[in-house]
Amino acid sequence: MSVLVASIGFGLISTSILAIAAVGFTLQFGVTNVFNLAYGSVMTGAAYAAYVANQFGVDIWVSMVLGGLFGAALSLLINRGLYTPFARHGLGLAGIIQVTLALGLILENGLQAIFGPSYHSYQMSQGPSFHFGSMVFTAVQVGIMGIALASMIGVHALLAHTKLGKAMRATAADAPLARSCGIRTEFVTDIAWLLSGLLCGIAGVILVMDLQSFTSTTGSNFLVPVLAAAVLGGIGQPYGAMLGALIIGMVSEVAAAVTLPQYKEVIAFVILLVVLLFRPRGILAEVASLKEVVA
């Protein structure tokens, strides 16, 4: 029983990292319709940016912010310099996915060329451990959960209570109509890439802070559960991504406690398939669509 209870606590940590990454992914997809498979490599790039800062003696939490900013800048650059020109040339959805896949590999190999094939770690301490019954969290993990909570509240506040958020939702729902209503959709798209990149970068750094060791493929390895969380919740739906992250994160950990651990990811994906069988657009897709109509 204590392992089961502990696994729920561990699930909170997994969920936190997954939620930040999945919300960043789905936010950008919702506004721009680009299924960005280079997302994992951008996460790794941000982790390396934070690593460089950390090696110069910068505190890991400040390095995390720098990593987030790096992710934001890189994402904007990628869209402006690569995806948008391809889209202007009429490349379709499948073609763009190929471009993102190729870019991911280029980034991954570029990072390997710069930093080498070996593993790296941040100069940081996990801090003291806190016990809540059977659950154990280090200070860093508590910090990670706090960042995730703050990020989710921030995204909610942006989308629900700001003009920019409403403009993003309008662009996501119907970009030509939003443009005809006077919304600067290109500016909104830039903001979406920046915000997505910021969350992507932060997720990359806190993933490594939790793993404590990383290499050029670390972010790409994490991409599959990120996509699963985003798709499970309803691709393009930030609240759905939060819920998807919670389900994937919790199910993986609890499955490892009550079944054979090597199948924990398999069980999470079986649940993903079952859910998509009954709700092909994800758990919150219909709910979110209805809300848009009512609003």
Binding site: V3, A6, S7, F10, I13, I17, A256, L260, P261, V266
Partner: peptide
């Protein structure tokens, strides 16, 4: 005697099982 799925984001639950 546990088998690990490779390259997961964490193994905390697996560690807890082992420590038990």
């Amino acid at each position: 005697n546990e088998s690990l799925a490779l390259d997961q984001g964490d193994y905390r639950t697996e560690v807890a099982r082992m420590l038990a």
